[in-house]
Nucleic acid binder design. Structure first.
Length: 258
DNA sequence: ATGGCTGCTTTGAGCAGA
């Protein structure tokens, strides 16, 4: 299974690029974030023409997540949101059992400024994510938690750590909250295959950040124990960040022997 | 040099992203 996650920064603005990327990459499963569209306006038909079914949790203007699966792949138990008693107005999580693997597409809140209401919402959302894992899955289940985590796990994942250390993406509390999620029993698949720094999944549109490779690695595919030994490859598709009208995020792709 | 880009929005200046 070739499994990818990609924050497209508007599926409507990225429709042509997404179709070309699907054709060139041929993933089996794709987790999308930041659709910025209601489900009724999601481009189901063009994606079907490209060979993919979609399960969508949409929202007007902001957020929005989806799971794309190549035709013929079994999709069961689609769930939108956490199903808990928390705030359910932001479409940031969709999950399903895909070919026997529990796959989730998550768009963790950015958090605005440290100390703000958005910051508190981000930390609470990550706590709810851990609670959702606790309620839904057993440690022996194959789980792939994919998405834009809006957290750079450590300084290797940041091009200029001093400049970012106090930001919502790198703040110790954000990193601890991510560690609590991963403490359920998840491993960062990218770090199974790459040890050093300089690998990023997001680059600011401004300041020539991409050509200077001044970015952060904030998009992740986390795997539960049964999948860790089955992950033969992990990469960030930097090519998709190039050219005309890219998303500010690049796709992350792994290969799973399932 | 602390903004510089992009996408969205009851269409246009303001919000949000990261």
């Amino acid at each position: 299974m070739k499994l990818a996650t990609w924050n497209v920064n508007s599926i409507r603005a990225r429709e042509d690029r997404a179709l070309r990327w699907l054709e060139a990459t041929a993933p089996d499963v794709v987790c999308l974030q930041e659709l910025k569209v209601v489900e009724e306006a999601f481009p189901f038909e063009t994606l079907r023409a490209a060979g993919y079914e979609a399960a969508v949790h949409g929202q007007k203007t902001y957020n929005g997540v989806a799971l794309l699966t190549r035709f013929g792949i079994e999709v069961e138990d689609v769930e939108r949101g956490f199903g808990d008693d928390g705030d359910d107005t932001q479409a940031r999580l969709i999950s399903a059992k895909v070919a026997g693997v529990h796959v989730a597409s998550a768009y963790v809140p950015n958090g605005g400024e440290v100390g703000s209401d958005k910051w508190a919402y981000k930390l609470e959302w990550l706590r709810r994510l851990r609670g959702w894992l606790d309620r839904r899955f057993e440690k022996r289940d194959p789980v792939a938690l994919c998405g834009d985590f809006n957290v750079a796990p450590d300084d290797r994942d940041v091009s200029d750590p001093p400049a970012w250390e106090a930001s919502v993406l790198c703040h110790p509390e954000a990193r601890r909250a991510l560690e609590t999620v991963r403490g359920w029993g998840l491993v960062d698949s990218f770090r199974l295959h790459h040890d050093g720094g300089g690998f990023y999944s997001w680059w600011d549109y401004r300041m020539l950040a991409f050509p200077k490779n001044k970015g952060l690695r904030i998009d992740h595919i986390d795997l539960s124990e049964p999948l860790v030994g089955r992950c033969s490859e992990a990469l960030i598709d930097r090519n998709e960040r190039k050219g005309k009208q890219p998303s500010d995020h690049a796709p992350v792709i792994i290969e799973l022997d399932v």
